[in-house]
Each structure stands twice: as C-alpha cells, then as structure tokens.
C-alpha cells in the first residue's frame, strides 16, 4: 500500500489551498460513500485525501427571502429527505432522496458529493437538471456558478476544474402553476446501482389553457452522464399534455437517450422503461400542477 497524505480541512479556503498544492493528485472526501467503495474495489488508490466533511460552512439548508433554496454541499441525503424547508420549496427533492439506496447510505452520503461524482445512476443529478439549479463552486480564483444543465460533462466527469470543489446548490423558486415529480425504476432499490432508470419532471401548467408553459426534464441511468432531455422538453413545451403529444415526446426521448446495456437489461429495454417512467412521472407532475399543490408558499 502506498503512502497517503491526509488533510482535514476546517474551512473552504484550507481545502482549496490543499487541492492547489496537490495539483490534481488529491481526492476530496465528503461523506465517503463512493470513495470508500472505489477504494475497496481497488479502483482508486488515493495518495492524498482532502477531508472536507468537517467544514461547517458547507452544511445547512437555507431558504432566502426571494424563495431561493440553498443546499450546502455537505447536506446529507437524509437531511434533504427530512427537511421541512426543502419539502416546502422543492417537493421533488425529498421524493428523490427517498429513492436513494438505503438509510445508512443516506445518513452519511452527501448531496454535493453525489453531484460531484456525476454517477449516471445518481438521483440528485436528475433533480438538479429538472429544477434548473445552479451549482456554486469554490476554487483558487473564488466562487463560480455553473448551471446544472452544463455541470455533467462525461462519465464521472463534471464541469468542476482542477482545484475546485462544489460549495452549494441553489434552486430558483418554482413558478406559480408548477408541479414536480420524481419517478424511478429499480430492480431492488437498495442495491441496484447499475440498472436504474430515473426521471425528474418540473412542469409549469397554464390553468386557463392546460398548456405546459415551461418544463424541465432530467433523466438518470440512460447514458454515460445524467441527461438533460432538451429535445423532449421542446416536444412538450407549449403543448397540452394529451396522449398524442406524450406519444410524440416519448418518440423524441427514445432518440435522445443512449442507455448502456448491462447484465440485466438491454439498451432497448431501458429506452422503453424510460418512456414508461416519463409518462407516469409527467402525469403526476401535471396533476400536482393542476391541484396547485406546489403553489402554496
């Protein structure tokens, strides 16, 4: 076993300084779920661990006066699932967090860590894309904002540059008439980490016409990165969610995603599953929009 350095950062600038000194040779550890697994699998052998788990400034959930929800990178999945402030501002998030693995993973795994991993099977990436969140990164040159739709770049690769770490995620308030929903297909929720398909839908419905004024669609498990389904959004935007419109959106979705076959399912099967989960999740989001469930604030 090679020697490994360890830095326990207490402040963001300490972590950033350590990352600068390491020049790309350090691994940031937050909740330690993914890194612990990758080390046990011998896929990663860190030579320098920068432990950010005790940086208080990266913790916490705050709802600003303008309705913006700010979730610190170290917020655990469990905190996201149980926070009344999160549920009030962005009800998709607790619905999403409930689907993550199981209790002991949610107790330690962090929102920011999961997003920084950019696992295509991850749940938080789907939600931040659908909800058009902003990812705020801290680095040697200060703080930088990256739209969630541009954050996931390649397999396990984000827009974070060398020496940067995710500091917090900002969610703009939902528009009046918005309904959101999260849907997931998994063979066994707690252990299926290769074959899940997830869909996050944010639909803003105009009460008078029933038309979808605006829509956000994120998908997980349907390609090498979490997917922003732009073309499918375009097929739904401005339309009334009637069967013919949804059928066409599903055709667009099938062409827009590139699921990977695995030991359980073919790529075509996952394409089909994605359309089924889209139909169900879209229906739930639109129904909630119609009931005005998410307009209460």
């Amino acid at each position: 076993m090679s020697e490994c350095r360890y830095t326990r950062a207490r402040r963001v600038d300490e972590a950033v300084a350590a990352l600068a000194e390491a020049k790309g040779d350090a691994h940031v550890i937050a909740g330690g779920i993914a890194l612990g697994i990758l080390m046990n699998e011998k896929l990663v052998s860190p030579t320098w661990l920068v432990d950010i788990s005790r940086i208080e400034a990266l913790k916490g959930i705050v709802r600003g006066p303008d309705g913006t929800l700010r979730i610190g990178a170290l917020t655990t999945h469990r905190e996201v699932e149980e926070s009344p402030a999160v549920a009030a501002a962005q009800p998709m998030l607790p619905e999403m967090a409930a689907e993550i693995a199981c209790g002991r993973i949610k107790n330690r795994g962090t929102f920011g860590g999961n997003l920084s991993l950019a696992d295509p099977q991850g749940d938080p990436p789907v939600a931040v894309i659908a909800l058009r969140a902003t990812m705020r990164a801290a680095g040697p040159l200060g703080v930088r904002d990256i739209p969630a739709t541009e954050f996931f770049r390649d397999l396990y690769t984000t827009a974070l540059r060398e020496g940067e770490l995710l500091q917090e995620v900002l969610f703009p308030p939902l528009a009046p008439g918005a309904g959101t929903a999260y849907g997931k297909f998994a063979a066994r929720r707690a252990m299926d980490y290769t074959s899940t398909v997830a869909v996050g839908v944010r639909a803003v419905v105009e009460p008078a016409t029933g038309c979808i004024k605006d829509i956000g669609l994120g998908l997980g498990g349907v390609g090498p990165i979490p997917v922003w389904a732009r073309a499918t959004e375009a097929a739904l935007r401005g339309m009334r969610p009637e069967p013919a419109v949804i059928d066409r959106a599903c055709d667009v979705l099938v062409d827009e995603i590139e699921p990977l076959a695995d030991h359980l399912y073919s790529a075509d099967f996952k394409r089909h599953v994605a359309t089924v989960i889209l139909r169900r999740t879209l229906a739930r989001a639109c129904a909630r929009a119609a009931r005005g469930v998410e307009a209460r604030r």
Binding site: I29, G32, G36, M39, N40, G103, R104, N107, R108
Partner: peptide, 8 residues
C-alpha cells in the same frame, strides 16, 4: 447507521 466497511 453507517457501513463500517466503507467508512474511513
């Protein structure tokens, strides 16, 4: 609860 085999 925590998984002690992946927790450093």
């Amino acid at each position: 609860t925590a998984s002690s085999c992946i927790l450093l």
